[in-house]
């Protein structure tokens, strides 16, 4: 457990290109500090998120997944984030029932101007994930090695 407490979680972020991705950019250019634990994939809209992408990220060993889109009402395509929200809430509850810790699935609304918020979100998620053990969900030996791939 001590080792777990010190581990650096690996987070995969799916960020909407119109808002959160730009927000992350802004966090960078305005030199906001946030943990380097997140890898980012740009998606056209949070509505692109498919539960399969989330589960796949966990399957390949990411400790947590963040999906981030425009605030309600601000989606570039009007309804993408509403649809993502439905999918996310079902996926989160269901995976929790299967045994995935809720901390591993994260979501946020971050606009293009919220560089500060993005940094906060990543900081919070990282510390949340440090509270639980590294993702060994899919490893055959739950004592270390990650699952194949």
């Amino acid at each position: 457990m001590t080792q777990d407490a010190e581990y650096e979680p690996r987070i995969l972020g799916f960020l909407c290109r119109w808002c959160s991705y730009a927000g992350a950019d802004l966090a960078g250019t305005s030199r906001k500090k946030y943990p380097a634990n997140i890898r980012i994939i740009k998606i056209p809209c949070s509505g692109r998120i498919d539960p399969l992408l989330i589960v796949r990220a966990l399957r390949v060993g990411f400790d947590g997944v963040l999906v981030s889109g425009c605030h309600p009402g601000d989606c570039h395509y009007q309804t993408g984030n509403y649809r993502a929200r439905r999918r996310m809430s079902i996926t989160k509850k269901f995976l929790e029932y299967m045994g995935v810790e809720p901390e591993r699935l994260q979501a946020s609304w971050v606009s293009a101007s919220e560089g500060g918020k993005f940094a906060e979100v990543v900081t919070e998620i990282t510390s949340d994930l440090k509270q639980i053990s590294p993702n060994r969900l899919f490893s055959d030996e739950r004592d270390g090695t990650k699952a194949a791939q």
Binding site: R85, K92, P102, A107, S108, V121
Partner: peptide
């Protein structure tokens, strides 16, 4: 438009 989103930051 209004739906549970307590899990969203």
């Amino acid at each position: 438009p209004e739906e549970a989103e307590d899990f969203i930051r």
